[in-house]
């Protein structure tokens, strides 16, 4: 379902020197599969997620989702494709502060080409345990509740793939397990493939498939 082939990304540093970040010959994720990606800080995990999401483009290589190479799509089509096929849970949640929990989820549906489905948004929030908090703005929600809203928003558009960038990084250890379990369960229920980046060994240990970026990445060859 997700296939990366010969994906390379290099950053140019202020002094003009090139810094190779990614060189991934091949990486695949099957439909409904749940994969955790580990790696050192600054190793390019977030960059990889951005490339998969089409937020950033690789210098070369192919990123296919359901047979569509998103690197070949024009920017507007890529944005639309991302809205329709992918959900994204950020480390800092990135909920919009002026919108209520329900509106944040509805916002996730706005750009996907379908009309916003309030019923589904409410259902998702109910699924993540926020039935009574629909009209609350992020500032009125706890960190854990905010993360649950972010999960509901990411799943709002029936994506094929959910990208989660260290979703437990800002949550206390006691609640990390709940959040990971919530994400995994809802992805299973929706038959959504999951690619989660984490630093936490406890979180990584719950996944059947754990990929270390250092193993996938062959940046030394690029350099």
């Amino acid at each position: 379902m997700l296939l990366l082939q010969d994906v390379c990304k290099t950053y140019r540093q202020p002094d003009g020197a090139e810094l190779p970040i990614l060189n991934i010959p091949r990486f695949e994720v099957a439909r409904g599969e749940q994969v955790v990606l580990t790696g050192r800080s600054g190793g390019g995990k977030t960059t990889l997620l951005h490339i998969i999401a089409g937020i950033a483009l690789p210098d070369r290589g192919k990123v296919e989702l359901e047979g569509v190479d998103i690197t070949q799509l024009p920017e507007a089509a890529r944005d639309r494709f991302r809205a329709e096929k992918m959900g994204y849970v950020f480390q800092t949640f990135n909920l919009l502060p002026a919108f209520s929990a329900l509106e944040n989820v509805l916002l996730g549906m706005t750009f996907g080409g379908r009309s916003a489905d309030r019923g589904r948004a409410e259902q998702l929030l109910e699924r993540v345990g926020l039935t009574g908090r629909l009209t609350h703005r992020p500032a009125a929600l706890s960190v854990g509740e905010q993360q649950r809203v972010a999960v509901a928003r990411a799943l709002a558009n029936h994506p094929a793939l959910l990208l989660a960038d260290e979703p437990t990084a800002n949550i206390d250890a006691g609640r990390q397990q709940q959040v990971v379990e919530l994400i995994r369960e809802t992805c299973r229920e929706e038959n959504v493939a999951l690619l989660m980046v984490t630093h936490t060994a406890e979180v990584a240990g719950q996944f059947e498939r754990v990929e270390a970026l250092e193993t996938l990445n062959q940046t030394a060859e690029v350099a």
Binding site: D79, R80, R82, L96, F111
Partner: peptide, 16 residues
Amino acid sequence: SREIAVIRSLGARRET
């Protein structure tokens, strides 16, 4: 800028 980036990441086009 971050808010705009989030909206873009949710699928909004530049023109949007």
